[in-house]
Amino acid sequence: MTITQDGSAPLIAVVGATGNQGGSVVRALADSDKPYRVRGFTRDPRKPAALELSKLGVAVVGVTFVVENKDEVNKAFTGADFAFLVTNFWEHVDIDREIAEGKLLIDAAKAGGVSGIVWSGLPSISKISGGKFPHVWHFDGKAVVTEYGRQAGVPFVDVQAGAYGTNFFNLPFAPEKQSDGSFALQLPVNPTTAIPFIDTTLDYGIFVRYVLELPVFPDGGEFAAYAENISVKDLTRQWSQATGKNISFAQITVEEFKQRLESAGFPPHIVLDLSEALVSWDEFGWKVSAIPQGLVRSPRKWADFVKATDWSKLWETTAGPRK
């Protein structure tokens, strides 16, 4: 059924409603057989993606979730029953800013009187590695916000997204074109190292919907949103089979990996972040919980994602993947 305007239906406030995760949440709620009202936040309510949400019945609200806009942010969640919160580290690559904005969202949702918060977090690589890898800021910042949220006094659930399928269009996950026309996925991990893959725009929202539709909101819960744990070796093999391209996996050294990122113009702290992320993933694994039973449908696996995706721009590149 479509999103309703009936005041008796629960109102879900969705941050990043025109983005990958927030947009997926909105679509999953729109597809539900249960009625929902949705308030979708975006910085520009006039852009095409926001106008499409309006057609679905979403109450689109223009707001910028930054600390400098605190007073406006604190009004945003008033009257909402539940809130979906997400931050975007890659927009500014600043862990302190991400933590501050994540805490701002939690405080604002609490001030708005919500009955529960669903937060898009990630595990702490520092803790998983026993302090060996303390610089994976794009994971650790979200983990700090998670701990803050769990102490906020509002029922709180963490729904962690796995590795986006769209990551494979860009460094460091895009394969590089070789002189013979083949492609090589070059990472500092073993071929058997596995990642929790998710087609984010299609499937992340069904995990959030699962949480919202449980008989009791699972305060303190942690869920991993992914379709399968797939090794990089199997990933490249299935990629080749589905596309007809010759794609292989090549394990490279950490120094080689860093040089690739530096050559592509990544700032030093992000070179360190991504390098430690991959090495920790290889050594300790990406810690995820089991896929919850009772999802409305099975999430799409890697092979089907590959078949459904237009990779033409990637194949056309002649100097390796673009940043």
Rank of each mutant, 00 (worst) to 15 (best):
D310E: 10
A109P: 08
R37M: 03
V114L: 12
K142A: 08
T243Q: 08
L272G: 00
L56S: 11
H92S: 03
D71N: 15
P292H: 01
I230R: 07
A303I: 11
R39M: 01
V271R: 00
P188G: 09
P172L: 04
Q21C: 12
P267L: 01
L85K: 05
T309L: 14
Q21E: 11
Y148K: 06
V60L: 08
E228H: 09
T236K: 06
G285M: 11
K132R: 13
G165I: 07
A250Q: 15
A13L: 08
I128H: 12
S275M: 02
T318Q: 15
R300P: 07
P175T: 14
L314R: 09
T253P: 10
I95S: 10
K34P: 04
R209I: 04
K287Q: 13
S280L: 01
F223W: 04
L53V: 06
K75R: 14
D94P: 01
V118G: 03
G40D: 06
G79A: 13
A308L: 14
S120Y: 04
K313P: 00
G294F: 01
T146V: 15
R43M: 09
R39E: 02
G153E: 07
F133Q: 01
P218F: 02
A49E: 10
K34S: 15
I270Q: 12
F305L: 03
A17Y: 03
A303W: 02
E68Y: 02
D44Q: 12
T166L: 10
P155I: 12
D96C: 00
L274D: 00
V60C: 04
K323W: 09
G205A: 15
G165D: 12
S240I: 05
K177N: 09
A242F: 01
R27D: 14
G141E: 06
F197R: 07
D81Q: 10
F249V: 04
